[in-house]
Design a protein around this nucleic acid. Structure first.
Lengths: 245, 245
DNA sequence: GAGCTAGCTGTACTAAGTACGGTCGGGCAA
DNA sequence: TTGCCCGACCGTACTTAGTACAGCTAGCTC
């Protein structure tokens, strides 16, 4: 009876439903609250039911990381490389910002999922189309990814959320710090980082510009068309003209 | 008696001894095997003894991350900025390579320790001495750190250790991958990454050169003195002269 | 209609963090 | 010297988490 109701009253568990639920928990309450029990609860099953669809928790973590990568918007592979890489970088950052636990999981994931592979595939195709050599592609990808992931890592490690509640927390930290031990640090924080207009997030586009300039200097790169100094993000997606070399 | 022996026969627990032991465990067997019990065992005490010196495991993790940062060699603050940043970046990477679990912990650490602060202090002083404005310093640090941490993150996420056992594992991965779904990826891997001479680690210096070039282009930068290119192979690095905008 | 099976449950074991309340020896005041 | 206190450490036990193992049950097949 109860069983019958259960069986007919709800969709059966699937790998996909499990992963989506896991992702929602991580998004809502942090990766720390994602346990087999909490996951089972939100799925309205008992913990062991999950093991009929996923072999262990590791696999679930692999799965949700790949789900996150699947959210990254893929630029068309024939777009101008600079605009394409910029929009992809912005998308990666935005997606990692939406699922901040991902960056912490990446270190321990060794098995790239299909979305992750697809993601690399796109970038490689893009640069190949733009005339980059294999060597230049390797340099460009290592460089760009290091920057984007590193920036995301820094963002999630910030002790505050958004630029608004910086002052309180930062002041508090500075207050209990021996000011004369770190004079330059304190001065820098007071005079610049804690000033009203400062938002660490803005550093992203500045660094990204430098990254793209660097990539443009690699052999085989087409001349950069879109100079796109600082804010290539949040709008300029897919200009989709012809290949620019 | 036993107690007496214990008391006199060994040094008493201290915060420092606890942290060093924790670090050794993490280095030797991975962060996953660092538990309060394993830690207590190597210190030859019972688990609860540790709680008289550290309030919880979080604090231990904070502590060992700061220990790692303390290993980073600080360049003299009056050195030429480019050489100084390059050597610091190399040191960070080397230290993170020696303690690969650190990068995974960084994401969850919110409280910078003294070594971490000292580290920032040095870099700020360095750039200040070189005539960088506050804004340029903010850009430079965000950029450089993002790159260095991101690169380290990529290195620890690689599914293999060192360039030697790449072939087996990579071949294995490629083999079970639908080759026609990721044609560019597969080609790129086969033709470049899996070629004998390739070592992902070499990408570090190439990217670092681009980072430093970018920083040189920031306002207020002193003219770059030491070019500091170390592996001029396989790339045409950019010319490094004066700020270019 | 008997049995197989997929999908789920119940129970329980193990590992880990840590609360709580000892115990014990050495230092110090009377 | 004596008695007491306190700091360092230990024992026990509770809680939470991952997951092994052995059912149970509804529906499908023969």
């Amino acid at each position: 009876m109860t069983t019958t109701e259960r069986r007919v009253g709800r969709a059966p568990l699937t790998r996909e439903r499990v992963l989506l639920a896991a992702m929602h928990i991580a998004d809502a309450d942090g990766i720390g609250t994602l346990t087999m029990r909490s996951l089972a609860d939100t799925l309205a099953v008992k913990p062991m039911a999950i093991y009929h669809h996923m072999s262990n928790k590791e696999q679930i973590l692999d799965g949700i990381v790949d789900l996150v990568f699947a959210e990254i918007v893929q630029p068309p592979i024939d777009a101008p490389w600079r605009a394409a890489l910029a929009s992809r970088a912005a998308s990666v950052r935005e997606v990692l910002g939406r699922h901040p636990w991902t960056i912490g999981l990446m270190e321990s994931r060794r098995a790239p999922g299909p979305a992750t592979l697809r993601h690399h595939e796109t970038v490689i195709a893009l640069l190949r189309n733009a005339g980059f050599t294999h060597a230049a592609i390797a340099h460009a990808i290592a460089f760009l990814d290091a920057y984007v992931y590193g920036f995301a890592l820094q963002e999630v490690s910030l002790p505050f959320e958004g630029p608004d509640d910086v002052p309180e927390l930062a002041e508090e930290i500075l207050a209990q710090m021996p000011a004369d031990e770190y004079p330059n640090f304190v001065e820098f924080a007071r005079e610049h980082v804690l000033q009203p207009g400062y938002d660490f997030g803005n550093e992203f586009d500045i660094g990204l510009g430098m990254v793209l300039d660097g990539i443009a200097g690699l052999e085989g790169a087409a001349p950069s068309i879109t100079r796109s100094g600082r804010s290539p993000d949040r709008t300029s997606k897919r200009t989709n003209t012809s290949p620019d070399r």
